[in-house]
C-alpha cells in the first residue's frame, strides 16, 4: 500500500483513494461530429502506458477531490501530483529526475 500525496490533504494511505484512469481525455467538443469509430475511441480506448502515465485519482475517503498524477506504472511510484484542470502533465524536469524505485528482476 502506497502513500499518495493528495494535493489537499497530504500523504494518505492508498486505500483512501480511487483510481480514475488516464488523465487529459476530454469529453469531445462535438460528439456528433465524430464517426462511430472516433466515438468508440473516446468511450472505450485509453492509453495503457508502461512507464510514466498521467492519470486521475480521487481522494474518495478523504476530501473527495479529484486530482491528476504522473505515476510510473512499472514501479508504481508517483512522480508528481497536479491540478485536475491542467491541460498537460508537468514536464519531466518538474518531476523527480529519476524514479526512486528500480524494478529488480532477481531471476535474471
Amino acid at each position: 500500500m502506497q502513500l499518495i500525496a493528495c494535493p489537499w490533504c497530504g500523504e494518505r494511505e492508498e486505500n483512501e483513494f480511487h483510481y480514475g484512469g488516464q488523465a487529459h481525455v476530454a469529453y469531445p467538443q462535438d460528439p456528433y461530429a465524430l464517426d462511430d469509430e472516433q466515438w468508440a475511441e473516446y468511450v472505450f480506448f485509453r492509453d495503457n502506458t508502461k512507464g510514466p502515465f498521467a492519470e486521475r485519482w480521487v481522494h474518495a475517503a478523504g476530501c473527495r477531490r479529484w486530482f491528476n498524477a504522473l505515476r510510473d506504472t512499472v514501479t508504481h511510484e508517483f512522480l508528481a501530483v497536479y491540478d485536475v484542470r491542467a491541460k498537460h502533465p508537468p514536464t519531466t524536469s518538474a518531476a523527480p529526475a529519476a524514479p526512486r524505485r528500480k524494478d529488480q528482476e532477481a531471476s535474471r
Binding site: 480511487h18 480514475g20 476530454a26 469529453y27 486521475r56 480521487v58 474518495a60 473527495r64 477531490r65 479529484w66 485536475v84 484542470r85
Partner: peptide, 13 residues
C-alpha cells in the same frame, strides 16, 4: 454521487 462528482470536477470544473 461519485459519477456526478467525477464529471463535475474533472470535466466541467
Amino acid at each position: 454521487l461519485a459519477w456526478m462528482e467525477e464529471w463535475l470536477q474533472t470535466e466541467w470544473p
